[in-house]
């Protein structure tokens, strides 16, 4: 038939080579770097579980990928037009078609079951570990400063004890407010950009936004949670070792979206306690100084240095 024409054979070879390169690249990438192939597991249980779930899904999908690409390459090599070859006039095969429909359905059922099996460990925070900060003694048992907003229920560990930090997204910075046990929300410890937390302690974040939508993401400490004005979103983490983990806003929030960075610095509970007490003292001192200044202004004596 068309066998005199060398073109089809060359094209088939070229195409197979291309597909084979693609498959080889995908396989070679396995030992290359774990960071290239998976979102990675940080020092927090939720991120580790997500990573395991990711690997299960990836491993289930590899045979499907290889099967389809393999069948495609095989068909191209084996069934290319040659002299004397006749195409089989097959219009379908009901058994085969029902078979692969059911096969695909079974795979997605397995994926759903695996996901639901992993979900509780990802969603629900565990209690703080034995090395964690004693929140009662530290005076940090306060609720987050939630000012209304609808959405999910906050996750609470079984023992009811978690360090509740308020995360507020604004163009283009993250602000964190720490709880205390008094009624005055204006004297709470707060920080921008870097969040300091104690290790081995369950931290629950209440995520909100005050202008446009943002998305909270520290890859090593679990997934993204959108900060949407009018809503409160929640996530948690429990960092097992001291260190600094970076991340950035993941939802387009305007021109400086790329520079809206965040980081979490985990320190040992005693160190955290020192940092926190220090901050409280600084705030108290600043408040006292401000009160003095107000008094002086009100009584008419000029403030020193004014």
């Amino acid at each position: 038939m068309r066998s005199k024409d060398p073109q089809p054979r060359r094209a088939a070879t070229l195409l197979c080579a291309l597909l084979a390169t693609l498959a080889a690249l995908a396989l070679l990438a396995v030992p290359a770097s774990a960071g290239w192939l998976s979102p990675g597991a940080g020092p927090s249980g939720n991120a580790q579980k997500i990573n395991t779930l990711y690997w299960i899904v990836l491993i289930i999908s590899i045979p499907i990928f290889l099967g389809v690409e393999g069948a495609l390459i095989y068909a191209m090599v084996k069934f290319r037009a040659r002299k004397g070859a006749v195409a089989a006039q097959i219009r379908g095969n009901t058994r085969l078609e029902i078979g692969w429909t059911l096969g695909a359905a079974v795979i997605v059922v397995v994926l759903a079951v695996v996901t639901f099996a992993f979900l509780p460990a990802i969603r629900n925070p565990p209690p703080s570990g034995p090395e964690g900060l004693d929140l009662r003694r530290a005076g940090l048992t306060g609720e987050p400063v939630v000012e209304g907003g609808v959405g999910r229920q906050p996750p609470v560990p079984e023992d009811g004890q978690a360090l509740n930090i308020d995360v507020n997204g604004q163009q283009y910075v993250w602000r964190y407010t720490y709880p205390d046990n008094d009624e005055n929300d204006l004297n709470n410890v707060f920080a921008y950009e870097q969040m300091v937390v104690p290790t081995d302690t369950t931290v629950v974040l209440s995520i909100r936004a005050q202008d446009v939508a943002h998305s909270w993401w520290i890859p090593a400490l679990g997934g993204k949670f959108d900060a949407i004005p009018g809503y409160t979103n929640y996530t948690w983490y429990n960092v097992s070792e001291p260190g600094v983990w970076g991340g950035r806003c993941a939802e387009l929030c305007g021109r400086n979206h790329a520079n809206m960075v965040a980081s979490v610095r985990a320190v040992t509970p005693p160190e955290f306690q020192r940092w926190y007490t220090n901050k409280r003292r600084e705030i108290a001192q600043a408040n006292e100084a401000a009160a003095r200044q107000r008094q002086q202004v009100e009584s008419g004596t000029p403030a020193p240095g004014a």
Partner: peptide
């Protein structure tokens, strides 16, 4: 939705199967 999509892909590969493919 991946089930009917998968069905299509399998059907396309099966269409090539035992044909005389002109490249």
């Amino acid at each position: 939705i991946s089930v009917p999509t998968g069905v299509k892909i399998f059907n396309w590969v099966a269409t090539l199967w035992r044909g005389t493919i002109e490249f």
